[in-house]
């Protein structure tokens, strides 16, 4: 009881590979697998939304090691971390890569007083309220919620801010479980 297809396959002439070619193919396969594992584990392959002006957190926070608070100044004193005014960018970029096209665009916007409206990436639902300074007061690292910003070129949301994410941490740290703490 043979399938006609298989009967045809059986009639095909058999080509023999040299052992070297087989070895190379196997090595190539292994190499691809290794790369896949490497990308999955060590390389952040996610990319956040394109912003009005390209800005790499990887370069600023990672390579140049600029602290978060240098730009997000409200984080310790307000509920909002706050976005830096373009003036803050110009503190460095008055001198650094002045002629890079995007920096030129930045300078033009700064000089003309045109604000940048960034897309918010780390979003919280409107019925939940969060206070940055109270969490910083407890010494919680920014990366705990925002992920490894130093590795992100275009920032993406590292954690879905679902209630479980918040509550788990509150539970672990003995923080308030009162609904009114976040919902009002």
């Amino acid at each position: 009881m043979t399938d006609p297809i298989w009967a045809k396959v059986a009639q095909l002439p058999v080509r023999r590979h040299s052992p070297l070619a087989t070895l190379l193919a196997a090595l190539a396969g292994l190499g691809m697998a290794a790369m896949a594992i490497f990308y999955a584990v060590y390389y952040q392959d996610k990319v956040g939304p394109a912003q009005p002006l390209p800005f790499s957190h990887r370069v600023h926070a990672g390579v140049k090691q600029i602290g978060c608070v240098v730009c997000h100044r409200g984080v310790a004193s307000s509920s909002d971390a706050g976005m830096p005014p373009l003036q803050t960018c110009m503190l460095c970029h008055e001198h650094i890569i002045r002629e890079f096209p995007y920096i030129r665009q930045l300078r033009e916007q700064y000089e003309q007083g045109v604000p940048i409206a960034w897309l918010q990436v780390d979003t919280l639902n409107e019925y939940a309220f969060f206070d940055h300074r109270m969490h910083l007061r407890r010494g919680i690292d920014c990366g705990y919620c925002h992920g490894d910003i130093k590795d992100m070129d275009r920032v993406f949301q590292a954690h879905e801010f679902q209630m479980g994410f918040c509550i788990q941490c509150h539970r672990d740290n003995g923080a308030s479980h009162d609904c009114f703490t976040c919902h009002r």
Binding site: P85, Q120, T123
Partner: peptide, 17 residues
């Protein structure tokens, strides 16, 4: 939702307060 970076800091204003 958008987050705004003004060109110059807005006097007397702290976001969230």
């Amino acid at each position: 939702r958008r987050l705004i970076s003004p060109a110059e800091p807005v006097p007397n204003e702290v976001a969230g307060e």
